[in-house]
């Protein structure tokens, strides 16, 4: 991870920065306005990539947690922690941008659509994970507890997906199939979505590396501290 940081670190900001400007240009200046939904549909180009980044965060948390329990190396624990914090940010973005779009299109800020339900459950798992870490303090055991939660949370995802689908699938749907996603008719729309998605993922990686460096420095300071004052 450190090697990856020094390799990708200096270059990455200069890809993400202009890349995101390009994404904004595509979103507002290039892509045609969706015919049915109008201008508000453009929020999709933020909403969906943020969801990808949030989901990526969850994957990183669970993989790093498993590696930490398996190897016991603190570096994996730091990765899991940083990824959880970032995943939380992106998950919150998803939950904020969704209702802004849903209000004019669905006529309601919120519905218990399977995806919404699932996102909000994932958000609460992230919240529990971060609270566990902040309540637990810097104890080494807390890292293990958090890793257990990271793994169990990942195991829960398929069950959550199945149950929320079945739950809503058996009810008469108020709104009908979610419009938009399948209906990105214009190829430039699809290109914009994937391009912005790539930018968000790179932004995620960059922020992860920045956060990881801080966590690593904190740990090393702690180690030096303990060496000077062996309490």
């Amino acid at each position: 991870m450190k090697r990856l940081g020094s390799w990708a670190g200096p270059g990455l900001p200069w890809i993400v920065g202009p890349g995101m400007l390009g994404a904004l240009y595509l979103i507002f200046m290039v892509v045609p306005t969706e015919r049915v939904q109008g201008i508000v549909q453009r929020i999709f180009y933020f909403h969906v990539p943020a969801a990808w980044a949030a989901f990526l965060g969850f994957v990183v948390v669970s993989v790093a947690s498993a590696l930490f329990l398996w190897s016991g190396r603190a570096a994996y624990d730091r990765v899991a922690r940083a990824a959880a914090e970032l995943g939380m940010i992106f998950c919150t973005l998803v939950l904020l941008t969704g209702p802004i779009w849903a209000r004019p299109i669905w006529g309601a800020w919120w519905t218990w659509d399977p995806r919404l339900t699932m996102t909000v459950i994932l958000w609460t798992i992230y919240a529990a994970y971060l609270l566990l870490r902040s309540f637990g303090g810097a104890d080494e055991a807390v890292a293990r507890y958090a890793a257990v939660l990271g793994i169990v949370g990942a195991l829960d995802i398929p069950l959550i997906m199945i149950s929320v689908r079945l739950w809503r699938g058996m009810h008469p749907s108020v709104i009908g199939a979610r419009p938009g996603e399948g209906g990105l008719a214009d190829p430039s729309m699809r290109f914009t979505l994937f391009y912005t998605g790539l930018c968000f993922v790179l932004l995620f990686v960059w922020m992860l590396l920045v956060r990881l460096r801080v966590l690593r420095v904190e740990d090393e300071i702690e180690a030096i501290h303990r060496r000077i004052h062996p309490a």
């Binding site: 459950i121 798992i125 637990g136 149950s163």
Partner: peptide, 18 residues
Amino acid sequence: IRAREVMLPLLVLPLVSP
């Protein structure tokens, strides 16, 4: 851990939602 009365429901409830 500290605050255990709050932590257990916080940890368990999201996980048992399915």
